[in-house]
């Protein structure tokens, strides 16, 4: 009985979710049908997307996606590596914290895109600049979360580590870092969506390829269909990344 009831409830939830998507599509259709100058209809947009994939004029949609993705990939992983290292050093060494923390706190509130002018002047408009901007966006939340994870660790783990004989190095590697792991992952999750947002922003200003570039180009040429397609891809990829991240989290952090 209860099992059947639960199944019913689940089915109902799925139907409601589907309805929500349908509602948006209906609204979209209504708006675009009455005001074709505002946006193309869903069907036209879909057609245009196929055109861009199968028969592109110039750079194909996938090349744009790949360009954005590669930048995020490189910047995110190097930011994770550097961020965890710096965060751990903050949490572990008082001298390092006292020295670097004021600098970090001073620079931290600067939005990553505000760095664009400086970075472009220093590094030009090549790949390095875009990667550097994404790096800044991803680096900060990882450092902050890693550090706060270490600070918020239940002191009983440290006591337990001490009585079972951990030396300082073992305490860090076997106890403090694993105990901070959920916080580190939370930082990495924030950093992932942050990187994706930053890459789009950076490409809107300095790029010849990428989804951010595509949006700006389409705006300049008044191509609403391309703008919509870019936006769908940006949100779709972002959702996909965070879905994959959650799956990965369940695997590497099973407790």
């Amino acid at each position: 009985m209860t099992n059947d009831g639960e199944k019913m409830k689940k089915a109902l939830c799925a139907v409601i979710s589907l309805l929500s998507v349908l509602t948006i599509l209906v609204f979209w259709y209504m708006i675009s049908w009455k005001n074709p100058e505002l946006m193309p209809t869903p069907v036209e947009t879909l057609k245009q997307m196929f055109e861009m994939i199968v028969n592109p004029t110039g750079v194909s949609l996938f090349e744009h996606v790949a360009a954005s993705f590669t930048r995020v990939f490189i910047a995110y992983f190097s930011a994770t590596l550097a961020g965890v290292l710096i965060g751990v050093a903050f949490g572990w060494s008082e001298i390092f914290r006292d020295f670097v923390h004021p600098i970090f706190e001073l620079l931290r509130p600067i939005p990553p895109i505000a760095w664009i002018p400086i970075i472009v002047i220093w590094f030009g408009i090549g790949e390095v600049s875009k990667i550097a901007i994404v790096f800044i966006g991803a680096f900060v939340p990882i450092v902050v979360n890693t550090y706060s994870g270490m600070m918020q660790m239940d002191p009983i783990y440290e006591k337990a580590g001490k009585v079972i004989g951990a030396n300082r190095k073992e305490m860090l590697l076997e106890i403090v870092i694993p105990a901070s792991f959920p916080h580190i992952l939370a930082g990495m999750k924030t950093a992932l969506s942050q990187s994706w947002a930053c890459v789009i922003a950076a490409e809107m200003i300095v790029a010849q390829k990428g989804l951010g570039y595509l949006i700006v180009r389409s705006m300049e040429s008044g191509n609403m269909g391309n703008i919509l397609i870019s936006i769908f891809f940006i949100s779709g990829i972002s959702a996909l990344l965070s879905y994959l991240f959650n799956k990965l989290e369940a695997i590497i952090c099973p407790w």
Binding site: Y157, V163, I164, G165, P178, A179
Partner: peptide, 30 residues
């Protein structure tokens, strides 16, 4: 310190390790 060990009211097991790995820890450190 190496002559003693302590058990806490709040267990103080490491949640990221299995029961077996928790028990292995003191020997690992040795």
């Amino acid at each position: 310190e190496e002559d003693l060990c302590m058990v806490f009211q709040r267990y103080a097991l490491f949640p990221w390790k299995t029961c077996l790995k928790n028990v292995e820890m003191p020997m690992k450190f040795k």
